[in-house]
Write a protein that binds this DNA or RNA. Sequence first.
DNA 1: GTGAAAGCGCTAACAG
DNA 2: CTGTTAGCGCTTTCAC
Lengths: 327, 327
Amino acid sequence: MADKVTIADVARAAGVSRQTVSNALNAPGVVREETRRRVLDVVEELGYRVNQAARQMRTGRSRLIAIRIDPDQDGVSGSVHDRFLHGLTEAAAKAGYRVLLYTADGDAAEIAAFEDLLGAHEPDAFVLASTHHGDRRISWLLDNDLRFVTFGRPWSDLPNARHPWVDVDGAAGTAAATRHLLAAGHRRIGFVGWPPGSGVGDDRQAGWATTLASAGIAAAGLIRVATDGVATGEAAARDLLTANPDVTALVCASDSLALGARAAGPVAVTGFDDTPVARVVGLTSVHQPLAEAAASCVALLERILAGDPSARTHMLLTPSLIVRQSA
Amino acid sequence: MADKVTIADVARAAGVSRQTVSNALNAPGVVREETRRRVLDVVEELGYRVNQAARQMRTGRSRLIAIRIDPDQDGVSGSVHDRFLHGLTEAAAKAGYRVLLYTADGDAAEIAAFEDLLGAHEPDAFVLASTHHGDRRISWLLDNDLRFVTFGRPWSDLPNARHPWVDVDGAAGTAAATRHLLAAGHRRIGFVGWPPGSGVGDDRQAGWATTLASAGIAAAGLIRVATDGVATGEAAARDLLTANPDVTALVCASDSLALGARAAGPVAVTGFDDTPVARVVGLTSVHQPLAEAAASCVALLERILAGDPSARTHMLLTPSLIVRQSA
DNA sequence: GTGAAAGCGCTAACAG
DNA sequence: CTGTTAGCGCTTTCAC
């Protein structure tokens, strides 16, 4: 590490004042083109880099984006968050931001983490993943007038809940899976999902239900719920198939459930998330465009941080169906 | 967010000087117990938190630990890095540090990232995962006298390569797997691994070989290598079984290979990494204590950052075998 | 266009 | 044990 080179060094070498260097870097229009050039050359030559801490003291901006990292929950779909995180880091870097990690167990703990972080490293924004009904983190951030984007739409309509979000259209995913099964000739298509009330789960179920409905096929009675997991998926699928022996295909709300369903009988099965497991065992699954979702989060954040009020929007991305042997 | 409360506010409220507040927080021994108490009470009451940027300008320490995040490589074992990252974030938080992420494609790019980071956010230390032969990142960090720990031992003996590292004993893992198979009555036990020269792979192979040797069983000719992956694992295992029809068990260098090997014939199989896939399909696999590894990295880093020269050590952790149906 | 001055919040050094 | 002074590197006024 060449020892610390400050703005003063650059100014001296370029024969200008410190302020001119700062302007050349931050307000390109203010400095004569020729001067700017010379300054930038010197910057390059000396390997000068602005010191974030100093800049932050002055501007109050850290160029840091904070996000929580969890232990892979059910294990199988842990890779989803992982891929999102990678995309976020990459997109953030392109926009001149870095990603700061924190952990927290539960909403209350996460809010405490917000306070901690804000007092210490002062991230410019937060990215909240896995939003849920009555998400207190969101109202807290809103109440405190902080900048953030959620990856996941606001499932409960908070009174003042106009915050920017990015999400993947789960219903579109299961709809694609259902259409695929219909095209393959299946007519009795069941659904294995999660207990109602989980936002994400309800959404996925809706995609299946509406697709069947618009195809003029009754779907009633073909639903079984389970907490996420392979064993529970198998049990649920077995129940469903016992009650409805004519069912030939199952759309599942997750790869875990699908894996279980697959073991429950000789039916076509689709999963959700396109996890490594799906790839390995040849499971047809709905793939979420996570890198794109992450990039969208950063794009939204950039506008928000630039003070663009029209950035209080949302983006709903469409997933794609990866067809493999299982269906 | 209660608006920014500075050290001056605390000093005023506590009726002491700014410096005394700073001392109460940073040098507990220097301040009278009663004063310290009062100051801390006020700190609590006002919700004061030290501003990192300001502190960093003074002390030159950011309380940031940087680590690279990759897209899940082969997909299957992506969860390994994920779990490590979670453990690192948690352990770092306990030690008062935060984890900063960056991406880089290749050693050269990563070195450029080091320079960037060091100039801007100035992380106090780096954690390098997936070390490899002739790792130029390590020599660069060493040359620049920077603080870091590697998760993975130094595979090439650099001349000045006395840096702290944490690793999991891969050989012990495959040895445990091999012993398990021997105990189950297997006598002809093959190995499916990666091409030689990969450090990690060679280590895992050695565990299998030495265990068989010390059991007085010849292992020659029972090795097949493949680039990591399910398909390649299956092909390699098929070859091996064709050439050695008496083989009844296979120790594999990864869960991917093991998954493939399993499909190659009716043999007992063990994998490595205890990935979600292994759990789901019931594959016996070697489990790495990643949270512990991460905590060890942080512990080492803490000592290094405290200037403890004896911290230039290493820690080799022992993995455990998770026995499932496959073996 | 360019330069000089001030100060963000903190802590190391010193004086009391 | 406590208080004062100074300055980390940068950018936001404000003169020139």
